[in-house]
Amino acid sequence: MKLYYSPGACSLSPHIALHEAGLAYTPVLASTKTHKLQDGSDYYGINPLGYVPMLELDDGTRLREGPAIVQYIADQVPLKMLAPQNGTLQRYRLQEWLTFIGMELHRGFTPLFNPATPEEYKVMARDRLLQRLQWVDGQLAGKQYVMGDHFTVADGYLFTVQGWHKPTGIDISSLANLQAYAARVAARPAVQAAMKVEGLLK
């Protein structure tokens, strides 16, 4: 398999999932700024939408969209329990979390990375994101991970996205549960391995 990624982008989530799963893969750096691969070829030739992540399977099949990719990865190693079994209520709870992270957090952060976004809008976006992160903080009370005591692919996604509070200037110092959670996930060997591949850790 190949994972097309950009350091610190949402592709860190499937990167973490691959390391947690212990699956063999090849990381391929795809700049989200130049849309070029390291060999100079055009990333749009791989993904016409131009963004990461993209997972290419050994038979050439390509999967887009982080939530779909991480569930695919989890289903390759069911004994690792990175996702609940298909058809169970817990699997739908996982999808509920992946959707929330994608629609309410990930999408909310996106305008804050765009230099063309008016500052007035950024103020509103930060306020809304802080409200959503406050809700997450409440959900994490008494839990190790979002689904309870067991790490799932939703944790890799939440860890990735919540980490964007630093470059976007959102103060989470009052969110003790979220801060403890982020530190707990960051300490996982698979998370550290994925971050090292992306150059986010030395």
Rank of each mutant, 00 (worst) to 15 (best):
T34C: 06
L37A: 01
D39F: 00
G40T: 06
S41M: 00
S41D: 09
S41L: 04
D42H: 00
Y44L: 07
I46R: 02
I46V: 15
N47M: 01
P48F: 00
G50E: 01
G50D: 02
Y51N: 05
Y51K: 04
Y51R: 11
Y51V: 12
V52A: 01
L55V: 00
E56G: 00
D59W: 00
D59K: 05
G66K: 06
G66W: 00
A68H: 07
A68R: 02
A68K: 00
V70F: 02
V70E: 09
Q71H: 01
Q71N: 10
A74G: 10
D75A: 15
V77E: 13
V77Q: 12
P78I: 11
L79P: 03
K80L: 12
K80E: 12
A83H: 09
P84F: 07
P84S: 11
N86D: 14
G87M: 04
T88P: 09
L89W: 07
L89R: 12
Q95M: 15
E96S: 11
E96C: 04
W97P: 09
W97I: 09
L98E: 06
L98C: 07
T99G: 13
I101T: 11
G102R: 02
L105K: 03
H106S: 03
G108M: 04
P111T: 09
L112I: 10
F113Q: 06
N114Q: 02
A116Y: 09
P118T: 07
P118R: 03
M124L: 13
M124Q: 14
D127N: 13
R128A: 14
Q131F: 11
Q131H: 09
Q131T: 15
L133N: 03
V136R: 06
A141W: 03
Y145R: 11
V146E: 10
V146Y: 02
H150G: 11
Y157L: 14
Y157R: 01
L158E: 07
T160Y: 06
T160K: 03
V161Y: 09
Q162A: 15
G163V: 03
I170M: 07
D171R: 04
D171Q: 12
D171H: 08
I172E: 13
S173P: 05
S174L: 12
L175F: 12
A176L: 13
N177A: 12
N177S: 10
